[in-house]
Amino acid sequence: MSGFDSNPFADPVDVNPFQDASVTQATSGATETTGEFNPFSANDMGNHTGTTIPISSGSTQPAILQTSVEQSAQAAVTAAAQASLVKQQEELEKKAAELERKEKDLQNRTAGRTNTGTKENNWPPLPSFSPVKPCFYQDFDEDIPEEYHRICKRMYYLWMFHCATLFLNVLACLAYFTVDAQNGVDFGLSILWFLLFSPVSFVCWYRPVYRAFRSDSSFSFFFFFFVFFFQVAVYIIQTVGIPRWGNSGWITAISMIGSNLAVAVVMMVVAGFFTVNSVLGIILLKMVHSKYRRTGASFTKAQQEFSQGVLTNRNIQTAAAGAAASAAQGAFGSA
């Protein structure tokens, strides 16, 4: 009956899984050997020193940094090469533009020539309907080397200032004449100096220095020095203002202060213009002489150029041949 007395719904054996022999043995051994672990204790750190992986004793720089430095250096070299190419391209474009401009200028100059191939005169710049035509050809960019542009243009400006001063001298002498009729001689001479010295100065000292710089002519240099030296002397005389010489200089201007102050002021202004002419003339004479010494010109070359010019001049050859023929005919006729 004992079998019928048991509870069929109760567990036949009350089993504790943690009381298993293998489990209890493992847990009891782990407790003995493991102990409490402190990761910051010195003993535990010492126990794990053998298992740490040491840092490589080689270069501390990562390999990827070397690669970036090399790439940056190559990029710098490439950028420098590109900048150099861009600069060369800009220089080539500038040279091409300069050549194109010169070609256009050459075409314009060629179009301005006559059918015979000679250059058409363009100075003085007169209108096309004027009955008087230009007498000279002048082009600084074409005729004068670039290193002589400035000095040659200064000589041209001096000549224009010289003509303006002579014209103002006429007005000052006119005012001088209105104050006293006895000063009519100065007024008449001032008109003569203006009409005479304006074109003569252009032909006698400006054109020679223009030709000298254009063709490096020793003869033209010597001719300019000879004439322009006297021109500077004339400037000084005009600045002084000797009475009855047709110049409104300092002497005649100061002499008018007591008679008519307004006329004296006008004459003093003109005297100042003559003074500026004198100073500029001396300065430019020295500048031209310094340029002349650099060109290698000499008196011997001037003599050779003069002799060659005389021998090759057709007019002189014709005149000499005519004179020789006349002399021969006279000699045969008398015989």
Score class of each variant (00 low, 15 high):
residue 304 Q to V: 08
residue 24 T to R: 05
residue 149 H to Q: 09
residue 325 A to D: 02
residue 296 G to M: 04
residue 323 A to E: 07
residue 111 A to V: 02
residue 274 F to W: 15
residue 30 A to W: 10
residue 182 Q to E: 15
residue 272 G to Q: 08
residue 227 V to Y: 03
residue 9 F to C: 00
residue 216 D to M: 07
residue 245 W to P: 00
residue 110 T to P: 00
residue 238 Q to R: 11
residue 259 S to N: 06
residue 227 V to A: 06
residue 50 G to R: 02
residue 110 T to M: 05
residue 8 P to H: 04
residue 225 F to H: 02
residue 98 E to V: 02
residue 208 P to F: 06
residue 316 I to V: 13
residue 195 L to A: 09
residue 180 D to G: 05
residue 297 A to C: 14
residue 307 S to N: 13
residue 17 P to D: 01
residue 34 T to K: 15
residue 292 Y to N: 10
residue 30 A to M: 14
residue 170 V to Q: 08
residue 244 R to M: 10
residue 178 T to H: 07
residue 282 I to G: 09
residue 127 P to I: 11
residue 24 T to M: 05
residue 234 V to A: 15
residue 168 L to S: 10
residue 205 W to A: 08
residue 213 F to V: 12
residue 297 A to I: 13
residue 197 F to C: 07
residue 10 A to G: 14
residue 309 G to S: 12
residue 10 A to V: 03
residue 50 G to E: 01
residue 197 F to Y: 11
residue 333 G to V: 02
residue 111 A to K: 14
residue 86 V to G: 05
residue 75 A to N: 10
residue 166 L to V: 08
residue 163 C to K: 04
residue 116 T to D: 15
residue 170 V to E: 05
residue 89 Q to N: 07
residue 246 G to N: 05
residue 19 Q to L: 05
residue 333 G to M: 11
residue 64 I to V: 10
residue 322 G to A: 15
residue 112 G to R: 07
residue 49 T to G: 12
residue 304 Q to T: 11
residue 5 D to S: 15
residue 92 L to Q: 15
residue 268 M to Q: 15
residue 158 L to R: 03
residue 85 L to Q: 14
residue 332 F to L: 13
residue 172 A to Q: 03
residue 173 C to A: 11
residue 283 I to P: 00
residue 84 S to M: 09
residue 219 F to G: 04
residue 7 N to W: 04
residue 279 V to N: 01
residue 60 T to G: 04
residue 256 M to R: 05
residue 144 I to S: 06
residue 127 P to N: 09
residue 165 T to R: 04
residue 226 F to L: 14
residue 112 G to C: 02
residue 322 G to P: 00
residue 307 S to T: 12
residue 188 G to N: 02
residue 59 S to K: 05
residue 253 A to H: 08
residue 310 V to T: 04
residue 64 I to Y: 04
residue 159 W to E: 06
residue 99 L to C: 03
residue 255 S to W: 02
residue 207 R to D: 04
residue 213 F to E: 11
residue 190 S to W: 01
residue 289 H to E: 07
residue 80 A to D: 06
residue 236 I to S: 09
residue 277 N to H: 10
residue 287 M to P: 00
residue 156 Y to K: 11
residue 315 N to K: 11
residue 286 K to Y: 11
residue 290 S to F: 08
residue 18 F to H: 00
residue 113 R to N: 08
residue 40 F to T: 13
residue 224 F to V: 03
residue 256 M to F: 12
residue 98 E to C: 00
residue 249 G to N: 07
residue 154 R to W: 11
residue 198 S to C: 15
residue 49 T to F: 11
residue 275 T to I: 03
residue 93 E to G: 08
residue 320 A to C: 14
residue 269 V to Y: 14
residue 310 V to Y: 06
residue 139 D to P: 00
residue 65 L to M: 00
residue 15 V to R: 10
residue 50 G to C: 00
